[in-house]
Amino acid sequence: MSKFDVKKAGLFAGGVLFGTAGIKALSSKDAKKLYTNCTAAVLRAKECVMKTASTVQENAEDILAEAKQINEDRDAQEAATVEEAETAEETVEEAEEAETSEI
């Protein structure tokens, strides 16, 4: 049983030493330099992503405005076509009435 307790104590001590060495390594000047460089890279990436997002948003706004203009033009063209058809129909009716009144 004492063998088992010694093994547990050895594992615990090893864990403490490993943890202490890890903390020292993570708080060293080299590690801080690495963290700083990584943070700077993330900030540059964020700036790039924001520029791209802004460009995409501007393009989407342009596309929306052009699509609205196309629909307005199409509606105006349809209205003109319907108006021409109604005018032509009225002209035909007037011509038929004129023919029947002449007879």
Rank of each mutant, 00 (worst) to 15 (best):
N71S: 06
T55C: 07
N71P: 04
E90A: 15
D5F: 06
T36G: 08
E72W: 00
S54H: 11
T36H: 13
N37A: 11
A98I: 00
A40M: 07
K3S: 05
D5G: 02
E78W: 10
E84F: 01
S2F: 11
E66T: 10
L64G: 04
E72M: 03
E94A: 09
Q69W: 03
G10W: 08
E58V: 03
E58M: 09
A98G: 00
V6G: 00
V82H: 11
F4W: 11
T81L: 15
R74G: 01
A31G: 09
S54I: 03
Y35M: 08
C48W: 05
A67S: 12
T39Q: 15
D5E: 12
A9V: 04
E99Y: 02
S27C: 05
T91C: 06
E84N: 11
V6K: 14
T55V: 07
E83V: 04
A13R: 12
A65G: 00
G19W: 01
E83R: 10
E78N: 07
A67Q: 10
Q77L: 12
V56N: 08
I103K: 01
A25H: 11
K68T: 09
V6M: 08
G15H: 09
T55S: 14
K46W: 01
T100P: 00
A85K: 15
M50E: 15
S54Y: 10
K32M: 07
L26Q: 05
V16P: 05
E58D: 08
I63V: 14
C38I: 12
